[in-house]
Design a protein around this nucleic acid. Structure first.
Lengths: 112, 112
DNA sequence: CTTATTTTGTAACTAGGTTACAATACATGT
DNA sequence: ACATGTATTGTAACCTAGTTACAAAATAAG
């Protein structure tokens, strides 16, 4: 029915959830300067997880994925805003799938 | 083999070639301000047919089509330059088909 | 030949997007 | 805890893309 069994061994969501990095690493990974990342966040285009007031930004898999997608569209010739809007739509699907997989993975663990 | 016979009665290329208008009409047709059309031409994005030095711009079907395509892409969120590049590719096909049809049409006329 | 349309150049202008700087706050290892 | 590296902001500067206004001179068209 699903391809759950194929990707299951590859995706450890419990690990993935812990895989959270600072803005510097995001910049290294994506090639987007830190100042630019913050600017995009100011504009409401991307989000980061702040673990409280007066703390530093933290980025998880989905946050970083979004940044990468936006960058791609900009390179394709889209406006920043247009790229943001397009990615917004795509992220809805990605989030959905991600959560679905994450849940089925943790359910499985409970059964074990 | 081809759909030539279906569109043949609709497309009179001898007429189409004569269907050439000034920049004002192009602006009315496309909704793009005349100043903008000239600016795009300055940048080498579109072309018009000047019938000699010190004359006014004239636009045929393909010229106008190009303007419309560019405008669409800009509305989709593309940069002017990016839109121009994309349309450039599309126009190659359109031109080809157009010429092919135009030739077969005039050939047919000669046979008649 | 008179009225409407076009052509240019110049210049102004908006805004989109990015970046530099610097002073302050935060994180982290040993 | 203290020293070193990393993050956070605000402010301001910056660049370029893209568009538009204006106005005087040239063309077109009825």
């Amino acid at each position: 029915m699903s391809n759950k069994f194929e990707i299951d061994p590859l995706l450890d969501f419990d690990l993935l959830k812990k895989l959270v990095v600072g803005i510097g690493e995001v910049s290294d990974i994506t090639g987007v300067p830190t100042r630019k990342i913050r600017y995009w966040e100011e504009k409401g285009i991307i989000e980061s997880e702040k673990e409280g007031e007066g703390t530093t930004r933290r980025y998880n898999y989905l946050n970083i994925k979004k940044i990468l997608l936006i960058q791609e569209l900009i390179e394709e010739g889209f406006t920043l805003d247009a790229a943001a809007k397009k990615v917004e739509d795509r992220m809805k699907n990605i989030n959905e799938v991600f959560l679905k997989l994450a849940n089925s993975a943790s359910n499985k663990k409970e059964v074990e």
